[in-house]
Design a binder for these strands. Structure first.
Lengths: 164, 164
DNA sequence: CGCATCATGTTATGTTATAACACACAACGT
DNA sequence: ACGTTGTGTGTTATAACATAACATGATGCG
């Protein structure tokens, strides 16, 4: 861990970027309206930055962007916005990277799982299937509220090529 | 995350403490001899501290103990010893707590999973069964090298009691 | 001995995160 | 209109976590 933070690309496959940003923002707006919470300018812009970057970013990198746009220059501003977005499920925290990433499936509540490429830094989100771990927790009487599942390894593009 | 670090107890059930410390140390000594790596005084004492504490500890807490015994006072000393122990599999890092904990099953290589009580801070280690996540990673072509699985919740003792 | 390797000691600094308090502003009841 | 409450932002200061880089010592080997 602790490589120099800047930003890590997300996902191993191509997709329509402008479209996914737009729909994710719309979804977030709708959810916030439903829940009666405020998607303020700082919060909105923070989410937008993470969506546009489409990669895991450190809090201070997000802050630098906000600062460049006059939306706040001190750490608490970024941490508060990120905290809100994480609480609402629009953003996930990647523990191994001390970084944040816009959620790939903001529509439904879910526990995320991540695959992190140690070579190129790309992060892909999958849905977690708790399975046996949840069962064994239940057996010991432990009541799970939230899970962190992160795999580190090599993404398809970064694996050593086989000779043809 | 980010509660004040000090030390978190481990495990939800009672056990013979002196015995488990002793056998873990013996196992570590044997493994190091096998591998031709040195379990130096700082490393040995660091492991011993984590085993005795039997809880997740922050690097600076470990350092404070080492320092009290004249074994080193600067952060790199603790981080290096902890790094060695993690590399050898005698200690695990808990990402959500930025903390370290002696391994409960040092004999065999394994990927650990943890249950962390958000109320009392107790940490229990289980063996991870990767199952479906590993499969879905394989499908996307991602090659997993290491996994982090941590559940936060309430341990049996901290759950609200039911009226009898 | 000369040299390589591994471990430790130390300085300095980098990176991540929060506590605490001040202020702005909208919503509400009176 | 007025105060009150809740929520969000601005700011200062500091805490907590982690490593780069270089110096020193100890061990083993040709």
């Amino acid at each position: 861990m602790m490589r120099k933070m800047s930003s890590y690309p997300i996902g191993f496959t191509a997709h329509d970027h402008a479209q996914c940003v737009k729909s994710a923002l719309a979804a977030a707006q709708a959810v916030c309206a439903n829940r009666g919470v405020q998607l303020t300018p700082v919060r909105l812009r923070t989410l937008e930055i993470l969506l546009e970057e489409h990669a895991a970013m450190g809090a201070y990198d997000v802050l630098a962007r906000l600062n460049a746009e006059g939306l706040g220059s001190k750490p608490p501003v970024a941490y508060r916005a990120l905290g809100f977005l994480v609480d609402q499920g629009f953003v996930h925290r990647i523990e191994q990277l001390n970084a944040f990433i816009a959620c790939a499936h903001p529509e439904d509540a879910h526990s995320p799982a991540f695959m992190i490429c140690r070579s190129c830094g790309t992060v892909a989100e999958a849905k977690a299937q708790s399975g046996k771990f949840a069962q064994s927790a239940a057996q010991t009487g432990f009541q799970i509220e939230q899970t962190v599942i992160e795999a580190e390894g090599l993404c398809p593009s970064c694996q050593p090529q086989v000779q043809s």
